[in-house]
Design a binder for these strands. Sequence first.
DNA 1: TTTCTACCAACCTATTTGGTAGGTAGATGT
DNA 2: ACATCTACCTACCAAATAGGTTGGTAGAAA
Lengths: 132, 132
Amino acid sequence: MMISTRGRYALRVMLDLAEHKDAEYVPMKEVAQRQELSLKYMERIMPALVKGGLVEGVHGKGGGYRLVGDPKECTVGDVLRLTEGDLAPIACLTHGAVPCSRAGQCKTLPMWTKLYGMINEFFNGITLNDLL
Amino acid sequence: MMISTRGRYALRVMLDLAEHKDAEYVPMKEVAQRQELSLKYMERIMPALVKGGLVEGVHGKGGGYRLVGDPKECTVGDVLRLTEGDLAPIACLTHGAVPCSRAGQCKTLPMWTKLYGMINEFFNGITLNDLL
DNA sequence: TTTCTACCAACCTATTTGGTAGGTAGATGT
DNA sequence: ACATCTACCTACCAAATAGGTTGGTAGAAA
């Protein structure tokens, strides 16, 4: 499986935040209920999106999360790369993989690379706004 | 990771068999050496390709494996589906997955489905012969 | 009957996945 | 000051997956 629940759930939360963009801050409790996701699990995922600058959270009563930018500017690729770490379809292409000694003679590597490019292009071409 | 070593190794073995198609039967011992793969691990993977009808194996001295069809007819998709089981990028789309109750209202499902289609089309469009 | 080969089953270690439990820190309302 | 609400953090856990290893058995040829 290329995309685990971590990335998929994050994307659904982002879409929920985009839908409730008028409310200043949306608490995760509400989002989790609407999306039928584990609140505790989501609380562990959100910091990655905060660190990536896609959302901001404020503590205390009336707090919650809010999208930082415009849903038209935020792509699915942005969300997935922050939460999944990498979208590479095979280990050889992950960022920080040990360079394979057979890379030069590998007959399959160009194919994997082309697919990797296709996947990135696909996700970078879809914004949150497109999915609303 | 969408494609594990299982599928990637299988593909490399298939390409090796295609390259040595003139020899009647090629023993895995030779293939494993050439491709620098664990013989024992490959022995566990090959039966899936036999069951799928892509290769045939004969026991005993002078035995080994041989491609059944033409390398022009065998696609990468065939090999990967037999060895990886499924090429779905997310769990919801795997064959035999429990149907999600949110499928009807899921805003992301069409996107995953489209990607799944792209990936299948990509792999079905590449034959062993293309990679030689 | 030895030797070579496919094939099969049990086991193993490490990592990833998908959480839960139990808090702390900061902001707000009373 | 205090209770309450919220993000955020840390430790733990069970199940699944990945990537093998070990030790064979079965069948065919020399």
